[in-house]
Each structure stands twice: as C-alpha cells, then as structure tokens.
Design a protein around this nucleic acid. Structure first.
Lengths: 349, 349
DNA sequence: CAGTATCGCTTAACCGGATAAGTAGCGTCA
DNA sequence: TGACGCTACTTATCCGGTTAAGCGATACTG
C-alpha cells in the first residue's frame, strides 16, 4: 500500500519550504524558474496529487458539482435520457477536472434537503436542476442558498440562474404539420407529467398549431412517462370509436410501449396507425418498424449544461474575490429535428 | 445568501470551547448530558452541518464512494442495468450518508487513472468495479493501491477484495431445459463481450448443459451488447438455411432488437421463433409479445454491493486504528429467475 | 485527611494545502 | 555608502473540523 505524497514530502526532497512548493505547483510568482522546474520534476516523480479535502478547506471549493434525480429505483433505468445527459455532463466536467456527485431522491422535500446538505457541507460547487416544473419551488430555494445552478430545461422567466434549453415549439409544430401533410386528421398526443415546464410548453405549442390547421381532433392526454401508462393510454385510445390515426408520444419509452400495443391489437404500422416519439434514443431504431422521432443530441446538451455551470462557478469565485456581479444568462440549444422512419405514413382514407 | 455555521459559531453561542462542541456533536464522552443537550439544541437551531472538507482532512475519510463506468456516451443510456444498479447503490449509501461520485470513462487506462486520482486525492473511500473481466488488470491495481473495493460480479478466485455476484450457471441451465422441453432443438445464443467474466461463465454453463441434452445445435455468437449488433446477428441467424427456432440474448436491449428483426422478417413470435432475454428490465414488458426473460432484482443487487463496500470501508478504518486484518469475503445473491412470457412457445414441428 | 481517580471542560496541535507577511541577499542609484 | 527595491524564498496563519493532553474541581478511598 503506497503512501500518499504531500507537499511537505516534496519540500523535504527539494530542500525548500512547503510554501515554495505550493507556489511552484500553482504557477504563481515567488519562486525562480530553476527551483520551479526542480520542484515540478520531483512532484511528478513522486506522483504527487493534492489532497482534495485540504485544498477544498483552504480555497473553499469542492471541485465537484451535483445532480439529484427524482425517480423511483424501478423506473429510472428505463429512460435513456438521464444517462446520456450525465455522460455529456461528465465529458465537460472531467476536462475541467471536476467531479460529479449523483444522488437519487424520492420526493421534492428530499431533493431540497440534499441541496441544503451539499451546500452546507460544501460538497459541491454547483448543481444541475432537472425536470424543471412550471412553478418550481427549487428555483428560489437554490437561489436563496446562493448555490450556483443551471436549470436543465427552460426558458424560465425571471430566473435567478441560467437555464440551458431548446425550443420545443418549433418541433411540436413540425410534427403536427408533418402528420397533417400525410393526411392525418385525428391525432392524439400522450404527453408527459403535467407539472413539468416542457410539458406545458408543448401543450401550448400543440394547441396553437392545431388551431391553425384543419384537424378533426387533436387531443392531449397526460401520463407519467412510464411504459405502463403509455401502453394503457394507447390501448384506450385505440379502442375508442373514433380512434386516432396518429399518436405522438412525449418520450421514447412510451412510444415503444405504444408500438407494442398496436402489434397486440393487430394494427399495421404505419398503414393503420402512425407513431411519433420525442427523444430519439437508440431504442427508437431497435423496433420494427423503427420509430419516427424527434432527435436531439443529448450528450451535447449535457455538455453545454456543464459548460454553463462551470462558467457560473468560475464567475462566483471571481465575484467572491472581487465583488463583481454575477449575470444570469440563458443558453438556447438547437431544437430537436424530426427524423421520419417507418412508423409514420399516409393516413388511411 | 445564508452564512455557513461552523462549530466555532456554536461554541460561541453556547459559551463553551470548540472541542466541547465537537465532543457533543459526535456523541463522545467528555461533556455532561446537560451541556450536550444544550449544544445539540443550538446546533440544530442554527442549522449546523459540518464542512465535509474539514472533517475529511482530519479524519482522512471522504464519506463518498466512486463508480467508474466504461461506456461511450451514445451507448450508456440504452442499458437500464446501470441506472438500476446505481439507484440501488444510492439507497444504501444515503442511509449511511455517503455520497456517490460517478465518472464515465472511455478506456481501461483512463479508468485506472481515475482510480489513482480518486485515491490520491482522497476523493473516495472505496469504489465499485463493474464489468469484471476474465483477466482483469484493475483487480490488482486497486488492491495494490489499498483502495477498498467491491467487484460487481463474480465469483473471482483469489481476489484481494470481495465480489458480490449471483450464480449464472443455474439460470443458463434453466433456459436451455425450458427450451428443450418446449421442443426446441436448434438454439442460438447471442452472448455479450467475450472478455467479461459472466460471459465466460455463461458460455461454459451453456456448453455443459447442451452436452447433457439431445440438442441438434446450440451455438453461441459473441457481440458487444448493443442493439445494432443484436439486430445484425439475429438477421444473419434467421437468414441461414437451418435457422434456430429459439434465440437467447445476453441482455434485454439485444433481445428487443432481435424481436424487431423478427417482425421485420415477418416471423410469428412465438410460433416460428422463441426469444429469451437476460436481464429483465421494464423494456421486456413493453414489447409485443412481451419477452420471456431472466429476472433479477438489480436495485437490490446494487444495495447489497453498497452494503458490502461500506462494511469493507468500516473495517479498513478499524484496521488503520487497531491494526486488525481485513478479511476478503464474497457475497452470493439469489440467481435470476426465468419469467416466461409471450415470446417463447413450443417449437414448430 | 492526604492521595488519587473521575468528570467536564479548555487548550493546543494536527490534517494538507493556500497565502499574507516577513526576511535575507543582492543589485541599483543618488 | 546607505537607503531603496526587488527577487526568492521562509515563516506563520488560516480554513474547520478532530483529538490528545492538560487542568481545575469534585468525589472516592484507604
């Protein structure tokens, strides 16, 4: 079992003081180039890595950010979204040698408690806020703590910290116009959880677009994003007298479940029913027919979120030293693109 | 922006010294019950939460464990396995108020580097080792570091740290016997990555069982676990002259992809082809027909892994203080159970 | 009643870095 | 030649906890 190397060890080896070593390692003035080179060489040779706790204690930064996910153990795995997001976040974080602390919680109260603890413990320098709601108590809570944060989703009006988001209005319109062009007149949408911001945004975009086109009916039914509900609602829709000729799902998991139900009922896809999924994961390409879906680059999205959070943390650190003011800025990403595949086709006449 | 409370603040408020506060908060002897109660009350009132860095620095523990996953950004999301595992791990960790640090890496070298850094920085007290290979360089590397670790998978002979695993031999036999009873005589298995320990274990279990029964052929083809390869290999198998009447997949994603291919080729499931998946996630119940699969409780498995790691960390801490020796112990979990669903049926005569 | 154990607390050192303040050595310049 | 400034360090303090050691005051004990 190797011993951990401290700056005191390096100082002893180099015949200088701890302070000199610290200056040398951090690229600060105060040591000659000769000494600096020598110290760096010794540090490298000894395999020195600074003790995070010690550094954190003196500079008051954790070099880590946190993400709390509010899902049950059984349902969290099924959605590819989070892992892809985290994967993108990670890519940016590790480039800046930040760590990612993950916590899975059951309720909002637990989530708020986690944020408070992280903040009080100084375990993280900032957090990502997922599943932003239309009226989200976490926003003020975190802003009041003074904890740097980035909302993953938006836009959020009057937010006290930045949001990274992409427009859902245009893609919503794209879907409906696409289906309209294919001749569909009765369209149903199995939407996500009603309280979520992006659900509300899509709801409105849907209604607005529907009003502009001569649909017979455009209905929205809210769900909880699970495959079970997706299947159940699809079954109900397809058993009704005037069943829709196209169904749009707010995520890929429900769309896959919906496809299963269509198979179960013996419906030909896309001849008798067209299906569209939001959030194109690999899942959409595994089914037959493959699911037409709204594609966006989620790892890139996560990377952007991380980038903004790191910038924010940097700014907060600056501000603490120089009293500069922190500006809230939002970042809009490229909207999702419709990827037509086998699950959509002309409506039956 | 609230100020963080330190033990010095509490000491001042209670009119005692920092030391007394520390004793009181940690439930150690050295203060009277009266004083202890008073200090605890003040601490609670002020909302005191200890600074993790400070505590870590003095007690040399991070109160966090790490998990490094070696997957690409695009493929990591699709497998429900990891999120379920992490979810289970989390449940146990947060009960012990440990944090989880997650890192996604691309190569083994990167992964080893992450472990070394975590260890040197004292960022984690222990790690989980996923995707254990048949000859895994990480095992010795981590053991040499003296970093407490738990292998998620096994059994590992002569390991220098514990493994949490479940028997794959019995379930492998279960599948083959089940298919044999249904009259299947030509069975194919699309296996996982050849270097992985559990792939090797299943390979052998398969061969052994096949030798005991009068199959016409039992073939194994290795893959990379992705839906693409699952689909591609399935397509090849089903296009061959003597195509199998049943295919077993080493994970659920490939099985879903295989089902898609079967649909694409117009095969009736299960009349013309039976499909079995390992690792029953919700995915298996979303398709039509639902996939017969090997069910195991992955969150519970993760919880067990975390429990063992925490025990190990506790033991290591003890050992450091008292010089006691650390015992390596392995934990075997309940093997996966076959859940027959619509994707399997009698072989066509 | 002196000797001593125990309680209840304070003091101070320590963990491993960062960093402000202090200082020795040397060149510069009036 | 002495005041001054600069370089290249060293020293000491701090971050916020933990903990060994110290130290009165009280209780116990032979």
């Amino acid at each position: 079992m190797t011993r951990r190397v401290t700056i005191a060890d390096i100082a002893a080896a180099a015949g200088v003081s701890k302070g000199a070593v610290s200056y040398a390692l951090n690229g600060r003035p105060g040591v000659s180039e000769t000494t600096r080179t020598k110290i760096l060489a010794i540090a490298a040779e000894m395999g020195f890595v600074p003790n995070r706790a010690a550094r954190s204690l003196s500079v008051s930064s954790a070099q880590a950010v946190g993400i709390a996910l509010r899902r049950s153990a059984r349902t969290i795995g099924i959605e590819p979204y989070f892992m892809e997001l985290i994967s993108g976040i990670e890519a940016t974080l590790s480039a800046g040698s930040f760590g990612l602390t993950l916590q899975i919680v059951g309720t909002v109260e637990e989530e708020l408690e986690v944020y408070r603890r992280w903040w009080a413990e100084r375990r993280v320098d900032g957090v990502f806020l997922c599943d932003v709601g239309t009226s989200d108590q976490r926003l003020d809570f975190i802003a009041d703590l003074g904890l740097p944060a980035v909302a993953v989703g938006g836009p959020i009006e009057g937010a006290r910290f930045p949001a990274v988001w992409h427009d859902d209005v245009e893609p919503s319109r794209d879907i409906l116009e696409y289906l309209y062009t294919l001749g569909h007149r009765r369209v149903a949408r199995i939407a996500g959880i009603p309280g979520l911001l992006h659900t509300a945004i899509r709801d409105k975009a849907y209604d607005d677009t529907a009003a502009d086109l001569a649909f017979e009916s455009v209905t929205t039914i809210h769900s909880d994003y699970t495959g079970e509900q997706g299947a159940q609602i699809t079954r109900r829709l397809l058993s009704s007298a005037k069943r829709p000729t196209a169904i749009v799902y707010d995520n890929d998991v429900m769309a896959v479940a919906g496809l299963g139900v269509a198979h179960e009922l013996g419906l030909e896809i896309p001849e008798q029913l067209s299906l569209v999924a939001w959030d194109d994961s690999q899942l959409c390409r595994l089914t037959h027919p493959a699911l037409t879906s709204l594609t966006r680059d989620i790892p890139a999205y996560g990377a952007k979120c991380a980038e903004v959070l790191l910038t924010l943390i940097g700014a907060a650190t600056e501000a603490a030293h120089q009293g500069a003011e922190t500006r809230t800025f939002s970042v809009q990403c490229k909207p999702a693109q419709l990827s037509p595949r086998g699950s959509t086709g002309p409506a039956q006449t």
